[in-house]
Amino acid sequence: MNGQIVIDGMTSGAMIGLGAIGVTLTYGLLRFANFAHGEFATWGAYIALVLASLLGTLLGGADGTIGDLTFGWHLLVALAGSMVLTALLALALDSVLFRRLRRHGSGMVLVIASFGASLALRSLLEFGFTGQPQYYSREIAMTVAIAPGMRATLDQLVVLGVAVALMAGTHLMLTHTALGRAMRATSENPDLARLAGIDVADVVRTTWLLGGAMAAAAGVFLGVTVQLRPTMGFELLLPLFAAAILGGIGSVPGAMAGGMIIGIAEAAAVPIAGAQYRAAVAFVVLLVVLLIKPTGLFGARER
């Protein structure tokens, strides 16, 4: 395998990993596969687009660029804003839809509802922005040679670095803070968590906020390195599920590792099967995992 595949695969793998954090946490806690999670990435990307252009209008003048990157600090501010707003979007979707259904319906009804929410959210963006691709910047991305035969754009390297830092931060939060412990405890045994004084509704809210924010970052990074389209998150959905299941449901390090593996597998498959079949790679990986080890790499349990 050549180095170029590794670096390209890792960049998209980092974005898959970021998105998969939310999938694996909500799945582990609420026990349902959220088909609307990809839309958080899409909404995150478009919210950042709007915020960045708002900043440009408010402050007058276009955004400069930072060094040889294609974007400037407007986009960084927009990224932060979009993570907050998308987190709130995830929370809102839970409180208008999923929370009510959890009270009455069976687990699978949640999956149907999330499928419906996914199409509605995506189509709403198509309504607002049309299906045409959009870009944060018209600058040409500079590439640098990292090693012989291995080139990456500066954007890619920054995105990779920030994504890995966000994932590591999430992992440290879960393992080293009281809130993180409460989240792991609740996901393992909600009744016992209540008995231990944990407010489960609080944990559920935190999980949505965290998952939404990470998905938004994934969406913005996808927009920086590729482009923005209303279907971008939906197309990410299968890799997200594959990464979460490959890593083991509920495991954040698993989601990161799973994301990297899927990303690299996709990049490696392109020269063999052609770029048009890229999206099927995640499906093949998923099938193999389900057949061989459905609990995934880091999964302790199948529930």
């Binding site: 009281a178 412990r181 409460a182 405890a185 045994n189 231990a196 944990i198």
Partner: peptide, 15 residues
């Protein structure tokens, strides 16, 4: 909490 350490089980309790 079977997936957590003994120390974490107690830490959650006294939180």
């Amino acid at each position: 909490f079977a997936g957590l350490t003994v120390a974490d089980n107690l830490a959650i309790a006294v939180n």
